[in-house]
Design a binder for these strands. Structure first.
Lengths: 331, 331
DNA sequence: TTGTAGGCGTTATCAC
DNA sequence: GTGATAACGCCTACAA
């Protein structure tokens, strides 16, 4: 391991000087600063986290706990943190965490803050973490009571409302929704919000939401298949199905097609998330795109401002509906 | 923060004794051990990780650098490490890394070892990391010269050979392949290996590989679309296309379908990776499944044995071809 | 502007 | 068995 001593020797200065260069103290002569920078590069030196932590109780790294991989988000988070000299570490976790066990790195104090992306925890565990670190929530899977500015998500009700309005304008009246349950039990906030949006659009159009057309299951293709089978078993099928994620929509469409139903001719199906595959699928799938780039950047900026005790401006991020063939013959 | 000193004072012993109690050294008298345990409980003492890390230069965590998310792999890695009391941290990186910048956690002494999953680095950077930490390679994206037991991947040539044999048995003779390039430049080892397998199967069947039927591009749907367009522009099209990943296969099939070509009736298409979507797609897609669970477990066991300086037995893992409609009318 | 020195909390090596 | 003590790598008074 390369230490600050090695750098100092290599650059022919004292380790205090090296430390000063690292910490941007500007009372270092340009000449020595350059010497030091050179040595750092040559030796590929990076300050040892343990040493720094012990001394400053600061690690310059942020933990992102995630349950869903979104490359765009990961890229954005990593890049934004990098700008500020922070390192992002990812920790993979199930979408729903009941106890704190899966979060050991959090408790080891190896990071300065935690971003929870698409992870739903028991409120007690959440508050326990929040006592130790700044926490930012991402993805709308759960809500903070109070600290709403630390919750980063699109307004799910609004986009669901817009999508539903589109279906209604296309003449659909019997709209089924497929909601999401995590760990076979809990419906995350974003799913409940989307339902609220759907109901609002229906209500405004004077259409009754038919409760029996709501199906709920976990994330994944099979939920879509089950939903499709359920709908096909009804005496009167829905004329459109709004699935609360794309995998569900894909499973749903596949099951319909296998039984000879045509999408969109016989029934509309919409998804959510704008996975790459939705543009490739036959039919291409209407869905909702989230600005994952912005979300990642925002999450990092938010957590850094918490860590550094500053305030940031409130930024709104918005989902955008994308209409494709599965809900629009002419698309 | 309560330290080991506080505990020592509270229990009326030296901190050395407290440390011994904590580290299960059994040369502590029962009487003092109890005293210490009592104090620890009363003060809610938890050893400071930074201190321990600094002293032992052991972090009990492993970094997994990945460019492709495979939930099965991540689960397996996390679970297997957990068994041994290790924590897995993930670090997201592009598939092809030219310099060491994206690997800062490695240099910060945050981890005891590194698993590189589907990440291709400059050889110089790789060797540099290997000088500092045990490294295990996963996914066949590059090769170790020498240390082959630390390279975990299926035998890509063999499965590609098997898939090609299947195509040949189905009567196909003009077989196109779509290879993979990372960062727009480098063809990873697994792609080259797959080509070797294809060529071998063709050679054995006495069929000439038609070089103009090889297309190469990056991972992703659009490569498949480009390949399809390329093939359709030829005076004589291939009768089967073996794409070296599923996204490419999907893009390829989509483009064919849009031009009115039917898969499998007019042309066969096979993929690689067994993404969930391949079973849902229309037509369902023949592909190769990799045992990601085993790979994850194996990778962790391998790296732990490196860290602890033990030897493990050599285990072979194998890919498995899965035949579906896209290469088999009756499937 | 630079270097020296002390200490953050822990464990390991000594003596006793 | 037990207790002093010396590191581990870093940052920051303080002295020069």
């Amino acid at each position: 391991m390369v230490t600050i001593d090695d750098v100092a020797k290599c650059a022919g200065v004292s380790k205090a000087t090296v430390s000063r260069v690292l910490n941007n103290a500007d009372m270092v002569s340009d000449k020595r600063r350059e010497l030091v920078m050179d040595a750092i590069k040559r030796l590929k030196y990076e300050p040892n986290i343990a040493g720094r932590m012990l001394r400053k109780s600061e690690t310059k790294s942020i933990l992102v706990v995630f349950s869903v991989l979104i490359p765009e988000f990961m890229n954005a988070v990593t890049a934004e943190a990098d700008k500020a000299g922070y390192t992002i570490l990812f920790y993979y976790s199930p979408a729903y965490i009941k106890n704190a066990k899966p979060l050991s790195p959090v408790y080891q104090g190896l990071v300065d803050g935690v971003i929870l992306q698409d992870v739903m925890l028991d409120q007690k565990v959440l508050y326990d973490i929040m006592e130790r670190y700044p926490v930012v929530l991402c993805g709308g899977v759960m809500s903070f009571e109070g600290r709403d500015e630390n919750s980063i998500a699109i307004d799910n009700a609004v986009v669901a409302y817009n999508m539903t309005k589109h279906l209604i304008e296309k003449g659909k009246k019997r709209i089924g929704i497929v909601g999401i349950q995590l760990g076979g039990k809990v419906e995350p906030k974003f799913s409940r919000d989307r339902e609220i949006g759907v109901r609002k659009a229906l209500a405004e159009a004077g259409i009754d939401m038919i409760d029996s057309l709501k199906y709920i299951g976990d994330v994944g293709y099979s939920t879509g298949r089950e939903a499709a089978e359920y709908y096909m078993s009804l005496s009167q099928m829905p004329d459109a199905v709004f699935c609360f994620n794309d995998k569900i929509a894909i499973g749903c469409i596949s099951a319909f097609k296998e039984k000879g139903l045509r999408v969109p001719e016989d029934i509309y199906v919409a998804g959510f998330d704008n996975l790459g595959i939705t543009a490739q699928f036959d039919p291409s799938i209407s869905t909702v795109a989230q600005p994952f780039n912005e979300m990642g950047e925002l999450a990092v900026r938010r957590i850094l401002s918490e860590i550094q005790g500053e305030l940031t401006e409130e930024v709104k991020i918005e989902g955008r509906i994308i209409l494709r063939k599965s809900t629009d013959e002419e698309a």
